[in-house]
Amino acid sequence: MGKDHEFAFYLGCIMPNRYPQIEKATRFVLEKLGYKLLDMEKAACCPAPGVLRSFDKVDWMVAAARNICIAEKLDRDILTVCNGCFGTLQEVNKHLKENEEAREQVNEHLKKLGDYEYKGTIEVKHIGEFLGADIGPTEIQKYLVRKVKGRVTVHYGCHFLKPTRTRQVDSSENPVILDDFAEAIGLVSVDFRQKLTCCGAGGGIKAAYAETSMKILGEKMKNMTAVQPDFILDVCPFCHLQFETGQDWLNKNKGTNYDLPVIHISQITAFCMGMDEQFVGLKYQMMGKDFKFTPVEVESHD
């Protein structure tokens, strides 16, 4: 779990470009937990586990391996806050560790890109697993300055847990890891219909089949709002983007009236660990601009 309490921080694409507040919150949380986040210089797009992988699996593996090599050079595990990046990096890392033929093939290509050689020395970690299991709902209590009261619909997304054989984080049919964590910081995780379906963004759907993407999101919004949550909790900037822009599109095109705030786990955890609410950055998001958390003060632990 992070050698010497340090991680190679993999930023991905959407977070640095669209949601810098998620990055700030992540850095806040890790620092408070006593971890240092190292920059991965020359890291590029993961690349996406849906589109690029289906076009050319080898190129996809090579590009991902190059990113992993950067972390290997730093000799630190990768921390990512995105389902998509996790999907690619964790899977390629595992595959190349176990498959000698693939490893040799990838290393052949990597040589052409520079001083890169995949060695299989590090692990890839997702913030959801880091907070939900490695730190865990009990340990996190020590660091909480306040809890938050509220009803939340938890969105696991796709690549965080699946395929179960590869990820081995939690059951993909009946997961509890994020719900348990949400409850640990004071929230009530509300059950809703079709909880484990896709948000509709990934796999190239949002780009190529925009209408279908919105249909899928529409269903999700219907099921979520039916149980009246205060906000949506996610663990992926792409799902985050989908919920944000999707609600907006549905309001404009389908006559709905959605305004459900979309919060990434880093944002809410940072707030509970003492980060100023203004840095949660809701006013920079599309939905729930005026939403304010309902904090519950917690006895300090020393």
Partner: peptide, 11 residues
């Protein structure tokens, strides 16, 4: 098989 949390019906 899913239970609708609102109506309690099985789907």
């Amino acid at each position: 098989i899913e239970k609708d949390p609102k109506t309690g019906k099985l789907h």
